[in-house]
Design a protein around this nucleic acid. Structure first.
Length: 463
DNA sequence: AAATCGGGGTG
DNA sequence: CACCCAGATTT
């Protein structure tokens, strides 16, 4: 690049920074986290915005800071409260990382979000982008905050054709973004950059006419703005057919359905769900949806028994789909009815094996109670499990199940080939009614299924 | 460097 | 419906 080009490049940068900043002051949106310069608010909003659009985040943000107004209140909250507040937002490990980081701030930084690069970086869930966002937006530090919006804007304005999915490209963008920050204006400028990406320089059809920097935008001048940024495509998610059980309680559980808690690591960690297992591949490669219903019900019953849950599938209810980044679940949901446990033994913990092979029946535990009636057994479990809510049912039924029922069970790794983590801390089950849903955090697909079910029940009882 | 982590919007 | 959106952590 000769001297003349270099000078033009410098002018393009100055033009960009000046015009963008001026535009932002006239166009910035009124957002809840922009109404104060509270580093805690900025931090919460940036974690939420990592994954979701502004419109979706706003109600979550408002509820979150109402429920957890300070770092300390977040640090001291029960984890399930934090997860419940995050319910439906996705990427739940971020909620758990956020609370972990709140404890860090409380214990190591006196409850104040640190105004220090290394300290901010050390917080769980805070990476290069979020650290830069907190330091610049909350503390006006001249740090770059390069997210997808910023990379899109910069790749177009400076016509950078590097693949933004690659690591080194982000480093390059950060160097460039840092150069562009006007003296003393890091907070406004970084927000302006992201605001432009969100409102004007959008992925599909950028609105170049109202763009404050269109005159010197290299991509627009070259007519290639819609083909930037260059980004390698993600590989498509793999499909997974699963059989799910909506179990209607009987006796002491009448009007309730059974839910269980997922393991504390992996997919949807510690969230609650209807029990479900991979569907066996049908003959000839047909999908599980085409699996003869009796075969599917038989398989589901085996899986339920294997998990220590006594229930009988009674027919297909509905299908539901749930899309992750890397998997697509198709859930075939069967309505099931709770059955009486054959022998009896109720252990005290309210847990069932989740990923592990079922433990052998413990003859000792069988004498823990002599209750054969499910309602009485539930009462027994509730009364013997201190600190649990009414309706808690101990499905840790290690009772004698005919061994041949398990003859065709797949290996544990196959049964729970969904990213399930440590089986030791999973498998808690509860019988819940609609009101109890407020106490458990569910992924959206199960929220929809449970609401659909309770709606259906209410409709029936009205008639 | 590649895979793991949700859920929603657009055309 | 196909296709798009992304940052931190783990492996």
């Amino acid at each position: 690049m000769d001297e003349q080009q270099e000078q033009e490049q410098q002018e393009a940068k100055l033009y960009f920074s000046r015009n963008l900043l001026e535009w932002y002051h006239g166009q910035k949106r009124d957002l809840p986290w922009r109404r104060h310069r509270n580093p805690y608010y900025i931090w919460i909003s940036e974690i939420m915005l990592q994954q979701t659009r502004v419109d979706t985040v706003i109600p979550y943000f408002n509820r979150f800071i109402e429920r957890f107004p300070t770092v300390e209140s977040l640090a001291d909250a029960p984890e399930e409260d934090v997860l419940k507040c995050w319910e439906g937002l996705g990427y739940y490990s971020r909620a758990r990382n956020l609370q972990h980081a709140a404890k860090q701030v409380k214990d190591e930084y006196g409850g104040q979000v640190p105004d220090d690069r290394d300290a901010v970086f050390s917080l769980k869930g805070v990476g290069p982008y979020t650290a830069g966002a907190i330091l610049s937006i909350a503390f006006n530090r001249p740090e770059p905050a390069v997210d997808g919006n910023v990379m899109r804007v910069l790749s177009r304005y400076f016509l950078i054709e590097d693949d933004i999915a690659k690591g080194p490209t982000r480093i390059k963008m950060e160097r460039l973004a840092a150069e562009l920050i006007p003296e003393g204006e890091a907070s406004h400028f970084n927000q302006a950059l992201m605001e432009l990406g969100a409102l004007i320089c959008t992925p599909k059809s950028p609105r170049c006419l109202p763009c404050p920097v269109m005159e010197h935008c290299s991509a627009r001048l070259a007519g290639c703005e819609t083909s930037l940024p260059v980004k390698t495509k993600a590989k498509p998610p793999r499909p997974e057919e699963r059989l799910a059980a909506l179990i209607e309680g009987r006796g002491g559980h009448a009007g309730r359905v059974l839910i269980r808690q997922r393991p504390s690591s992996g997919l949807l960690a510690r969230m609650w769900e209807l029990p479900h297992w991979p569907a066996p591949p049908a003959e000839g490669g047909a999908s599980a949806a085409l699996l003869p219903e009796t075969a599917a019900q038989d398989r589901l019953r085996r899986s339920l028994l294997q998990a220590g849950i006594f229930a009988r599938p009674e027919g297909h209810w509905m299908a539901a789909e749930h899309t992750f980044s890397h998997i697509v679940w198709t859930l075939q949901v069967y309505r099931c009815r709770e059955e009486e446990a054959p022998a009896l033994p109720l252990a005290a913990e309210g847990r069932v094996p989740y990923g592990a092979a079922s433990s052998p029946a413990d003859p000792g535990s069988a004498s823990a109670s002599g209750l054969a009636d499910p309602a009485a057994a539930a009462d027994y479990a509730a009364s013997s499990a201190a600190g649990t809510s009414p309706g808690v049912y101990n499905a840790g039924l290690t009772a004698s199940v005919p061994a041949d029922l398990f003859a065709e069970e797949p290996a544990p790794a196959e049964r729970f080939a969904d990213g399930g983590g440590n089986p030791e801390d999973a498998g808690a089950v509860r019988w819940i009614n609609r009101g109890d849903m407020a106490n458990y955090a569910f992924p959206n697909v199960f929220l929809k299924l449970l609401n659909a079910y309770f709606d259906e029940q209410e409709g029936k009882s009205d008639n």
